[in-house]
Design a protein around this nucleic acid. Structure first.
Lengths: 205, 205, 205, 205
DNA sequence: AATGAATGAGAATTCATTCAT
DNA sequence: TATGAATGAATTCTCATTCAT
């Protein structure tokens, strides 16, 4: 009984195992060469289990991880603390988080980019989620600090979305196509300056 | 008249037909959902013909188009004319070309991004080709104009590679993930300013 | 009753069905004209099932049958009983077994001969297995009977390998190229005498 | 004109080129992995040329080479000279020729063995040709020497066919499955003794 | 829930063969 | 005669998905 128990996982552990295995394999061999059968084999669970949790297979894994990770990323930010900073420092913190997150979850991000090419619904959900996410963020920030009240709510959201896309575009290229700088520090410093410049540019228009 | 010539022309026509059909389909339904059978059917040629020209199928199509398009892009630039401009104007011309090229060949670029995930050789060839390409460009430019002699050859190449990656990263995101601006003109203007800023930043380091 | 057991039995039944169907078809239409699709169709199972059990298709079927049949052939021989005989009688028993086995499994033997032409690894495995097989046999025989102690272990193994090859060469030609004799009895008698002669010849060298 | 002439081959040269290339490839990669396209590519001629000379492709190449080589083997033997020998010496000469021929044309022999598995007509032609061949030989020999008159014509033919098969069986196994002896000389000596023994055995029955 | 054997549509690739030049 | 582009049926192999246990 006891020895059996050891190997019993609860639901969330199984799901996380599937996530981890999937993204690990994507990183190793790309999204479209990673099959549900591979995931099952590599995670040492059965294909049936994957389909129990993700009835539509690979697409579902990405979809659900996308939902969860966006939410988690949002929740993980202590907005109240960030709001104390000036805008520049806030931006720096934010892009550092994005960088870390992207680097640690590169498998997922590669999979996601592949998936949205053929999954229009996911593509749309992504767009919607981002606006939704930054709407919340902006509302919170504006409640907490005057630093964010120079701009209308809508405009501030657009700024965030713009910055988010900008940083993601460059991050993704850096991590999956060709590196911009040899070290993370140089890269982050450039990103920070680029963000500041772009913020200024954007606000002028 | 020249029976040999006609043959050759047909050959290139067929190759171009395969390119066009493939990238058109990639744009419509993503790289990994576009099969060689689809290409053949859509182009109204037989599968065998595709494999006559591209023995390793999809990977070969991308590889060869990559080689050809990089070369064509290089050849198509009248460097002598560009060299007359100051650096800022040169950059503007260059990124406008990149933008047009990327927009017109989005199918290819999507396919290329997917392909390098699983084709390490293509990934490496890409890196090498870019440095090779800008090496040539820089040498030509430095012969033609004093505007490009403030920097060492090596440094100038690095600047170009950096700018090329930067613009590509943003272009690709804009065209395939989420738009930065609603109109092309706004986007180009931003890109131009971003490039100028980044050039300055890069040269300071 | 034992749900696990039943599963396992079905598994082996399916594997045997694939073996039988494959070798039946090889006998009818040669190795290289027998496709995995033919096997599936003829056995009324799906292609997927074949690849579940034999991930590398035809080559795997041969490889695995080769391993199993060599082992089975070894196990099936009651060495202790054979050891009681004198060498001549032992040889006669042995070649009679080989004859029966070859005749009953001609489809396999034809497939095997074709397969080793293009599968170097199988070719090598075959060589190695034969020496391994006769090493075991010789050790057992020498433990059980003094009849086999006139020769060194190594030399005895070589004799067996030699005889095995000799008999196989002639058997295979007889069954697949052109018959040496009209009846099995005549053929077996010739083989027996040939073996005795060759044994004597071999021991003299 | 002159430089062109250099590359013009006559019919027989082309045919020989096809034979050589085909059997070279069979030796390297087996019969069923050698396609007409491979042959054309390797021989640097066009597929069309192969089909000009061999309208039914691979099967035709084997068939025609089979016919020609059997005839050539027959013609190449100076029967009058062989007839002067006693039977034992005759046999030795004969099997030495077979050995050399088989070794030099192993590619062909491998291809032939594969081909007869699926080409019943070739299988039958082979049987017929062998009897036809030895009928001729025997008639010639009996005209030239008394050494061959102890046996009836029919019986003598059967002896030859038997010996021919025996030697071929062992030769083929030695060259394509597993070697009987480490050196050619040892092997030939064994073959010679085996032939003598078998001749005696056969004549007794 | 979890398993994994089984499925079969479909993707990648090969190859004998034809035919216009 | 020689060529080789073009064909498409056939082959190997993969993979998402189902379902009985």
């Amino acid at each position: 009984m006891d020895s059996k128990k050891k190997f019993v996982r609860n639901k969330q552990e199984k799901i996380d195992l599937i996530y981890d295995t999937f993204f690990k394999l994507v990183l190793k061999q790309s999204y479209h060469k990673t099959s549900t059968n591979h995931i099952a084999e590599s995670a040492r669970i059965s294909i049936g289990t994957i389909y129990n949790y993700f009835p539509r297979g690979k697409e579902d894994i990405i979809r659900k991880y996308f939902e969860e990770s966006m939410t988690a990323f949002f929740v993980s930010h202590d907005v109240s603390k960030m709001a104390e900073n000036n805008v520049r420092d806030f931006l720096d913190d934010f892009l550092l988080d994005l960088f870390r997150n992207h680097k640690e979850n590169l498998g997922y991000h590669l999979a996601f980019r592949s998936a949205i090419q053929s999954d229009k619904a996911l593509f749309d959900a992504h767009q919607e989620k981002i606006f939704h996410f930054f709407n919340h963020l902006v509302r919170k920030l504006r409640k907490l600090s005057d630093n964010f009240k120079q701009l209308s709510e809508r405009r501030l959201v657009n700024v965030f979305v713009f910055m988010y896309n900008l940083v993601n575009a460059i991050l993704h290229h850096h991590l999956s196509v060709m590196e911009f700088f040899d070290t993370d520090d140089e890269f982050i410093d450039y990103l920070s300056n680029l963000a500041a410049f772009s913020l200024e540019y954007y606000l002028k228009t």
